[in-house]
Design a protein around this nucleic acid. Sequence first.
DNA 1: ATCCTCCTCGGAAGAATCTTTCATTTTCTA
DNA 2: TAGAAAATGAAAGATTCTTCCGAGGAGGAT
Lengths: 158, 158
Amino acid sequence: MKDSSEEDFDRIDLKILRALQSEGRLTNADLAERVNVSPATCHRRTQRLFEEGHITGVRAEVAPAAVGLGALVMVGVVLDRSTPESFAAFEGAVLEMKEVLDCNLVAGDFDYLLKIRVRDMADFNKLHGQKLIALPGVRQTRTFFVMKEVKENARLPF
Amino acid sequence: MKDSSEEDFDRIDLKILRALQSEGRLTNADLAERVNVSPATCHRRTQRLFEEGHITGVRAEVAPAAVGLGALVMVGVVLDRSTPESFAAFEGAVLEMKEVLDCNLVAGDFDYLLKIRVRDMADFNKLHGQKLIALPGVRQTRTFFVMKEVKENARLPF
DNA sequence: ATCCTCCTCGGAAGAATCTTTCATTTTCTA
DNA sequence: TAGAAAATGAAAGATTCTTCCGAGGAGGAT
């Protein structure tokens, strides 16, 4: 099996991953010092983690309220039919909706669970009436307004 | 009102926010070029966005499967009582659970919606039996295994 | 054990970038 | 409109990036 990444990470790789997960803008020099390795080695290791896809990207987290996206809403969706075509059509349409931050196909009372960010409740109401229930194959939706964000996008526990 | 940030962003700030949201490790020089501004100005603007809390952090996204966290599960939680003390106790305990990536207090059929990452179903089963239902005040949980991650942590639409 | 190959390491150094200073220009206020 | 406050770009020393190189070490075959 030459999956190119069937191997595990050693202690150095793990330290780099953990450090960059917390502080993605760390300088290579600082990172090297933290990981106790020369800057050259650190640079090579980090570059490889990116190239092999173990780090899929580095992103700045923008305060939602600062850009007029203060409202968070979770929505459960049930589709009309459970055919592959139906799922594909829904997923394709959801991918185009920039307000939808997460979309997961789940097992349980819903087919999909969505995480949506909008300006406020009025904005969500408009989105719901004009776009959500108009998505392909949607039979029913269940809305959960978020009243308090206790924990948001925590770091991966490894 | 001296909220220190009651003002909106101008076009330059927005460009910086958008660029860093997509590529958090952009060099200041590259960022400046993209935003059509001198490196000095770009540096100052970016620094200010961090200092004023509009960028809350920069984080590398680690592929979950690469670190043994291939399973994603959403869990709805209903508490025994709806008292402030009950909520506080639950939230405090959830904050200590590193497997819980998201935790939101919601309006609807549940009190809380959790997003949890573990190695596999067996791992989740153990977590559920040993820790989830043992959290303070939990009356009932409803589990949604994620079968397909259609969209995960998309960028904020602004 | 010995040799050989492959891989990873750290030092070094030119190129690139960061970060601050300063004079100038622009914006805002009275 | 005049003056104050804030933001801008050029410049430059300090820092960092990124690559090249030879040295060390693990593992395999003889």
